[in-house]
């Protein structure tokens, strides 16, 4: 009896060690993948499927004389290119293209961002593990699973390049294993195989070129504005914390913008006064991104709350219903 108990304890300890090693290997690979985005030179063509849209883009990334350079080329539809050299970004679009409007909000950092922002927060809400090997874009890959521990967030399946740790394919999946978004390299050259000339823009004929400089952090909250203090969520899924909060100007009124993240998934909440002409409650979905608009009444005042995020609709609904004004 005693021996049996000891055996059980031993098995338990051994399996814990095993699981821990398994998780460590996966987490190490995730960390390497995170670095690879900005450190590896690559030139590839990838497909991106989200909702009912399928896009094809070419991305080139290389560090030349210590300066990060990137080039993103749309291969379908209207020709577009985005070039970055250090902090300088140039958008090349055909006249009338809608992308030009996005220039004011081009990412303030490298396009090739880290996949995971805060590793230390992942383990509480996700299981990370290695699930064998695979092949993407003709390259050998290690398969990683980032599986949520509850129903309040989506999971990821990742194919990471064995040689460079670059992300070759990712699937964003819901709890029923439905793929909501897929990103996949179809062709990829890395390292010395990427010539500097791959960073040169294509033919400039007919293009409009807009230049901009990458700015610092998003707009800070003005000290005089206290409306940020007024709103809070009564319920948040485990692991989610406020990442940023600020107040934005819309014509005629302010919009409070709160952003929450669990280190991987994120959602934004926008709170504004109820338009005098009324508003509809509505829910829409684009790939993994759900958008939900609802109104909340505080006394005789009504506010319109919109939640947008890569979280399951049921979770979004729970959160939005819990939003309330703090009692002063």
């Amino acid at each position: 009896m005693r021996a049996s108990l000891l055996n059980r304890v031993l098995i338990c300890v051994l399996s814990c060690i095993g699981a821990s090693a398994w998780a460590n290997e996966a987490e190490e690979l995730l960390a390497r993948m995170n670095q690879a985005f900005s450190e590896v030179s690559y030139d590839g063509v990838f497909s991106y499927y989200s909702g009912d849209e399928l896009a094809s883009l070419r991305v080139v990334h290389k560090i030349v004389d210590g300066v990060q350079r990137e080039r993103l080329v749309h291969l379908n539809g209207a020709p577009r290119e985005i070039l970055r050299e250090g902090d300088e970004v140039a958008c090349l679009v055909m006249p009338g293209d809608d992308l030009i409007g996005l220039q004011d909000s081009i990412p303030t950092g490298p396009f090739a961002r880290a996949f995971v922002r805060q590793f230390d927060r992942l383990s509480g809400t996700y299981e990370v593990g290695v699930y064998g090997s695979g092949r993407v874009a003709g390259r050998a890959a290690v398969r990683l699973g980032v599986t949520p521990k509850d129903k309040h967030r989506y999971g990821y399946r990742l194919w990471v390049d064995q040689e460079t740790a670059l992300l070759l394919r990712s699937e964003l999946v819901d709890e029923h294993d439905n793929k909501l978004e897929i990103f996949q390299f179809n062709y990829l050259v890395t390292g010395e195989g990427v010539p500097d000339s791959a960073l040169d823009a294509g033919s400039l004929e007919g293009f409009e070129v807009s230049h901009l400089r990458l700015a610092g952090e998003p707009h800070a909250v003005s000290a005089a504005n206290t409306s940020l203090e007024e709103w809070t969520t009564g319920w948040l899924p485990p692991g989610f914390m406020m990442a940023t909060s600020d107040v934005r100007r819309k014509p005629g009124h302010d919009v409070t913008n709160l952003v929450y993240s669990d280190g991987l998934a994120a959602f934004s909440i926008f709170i504004e006064p109820m338009p005098s002409r009324g508003a509809a409650s509505m829910v829409s979905q684009h790939g993994a991104t759900v958008a939900m608009t609802h109104q909340i009444g505080v006394g005789e005042e009504y506010h319109l709350v919109t939640l947008v995020g890569e979280i399951p609709p049921d979770t979004a609904s729970e959160i939005i219903k819990s939003i309330r004004r703090k009692s002063s």
């Binding site: 849209e53 990412p107 880290a114 990103f183």
Partner: peptide, 25 residues
């Protein structure tokens, strides 16, 4: 706005791809 923020603050190529392609008619 959310997708732009997401591309700025998190994610990898895929997130930026969403931003760059989202409004594509």
């Amino acid at each position: 706005h959310h997708i732009q923020q997401r591309a700025m603050n998190q994610a990898g190529v895929s997130s930026f791809a969403k931003m760059a392609t989202f409004s594509q008619p």
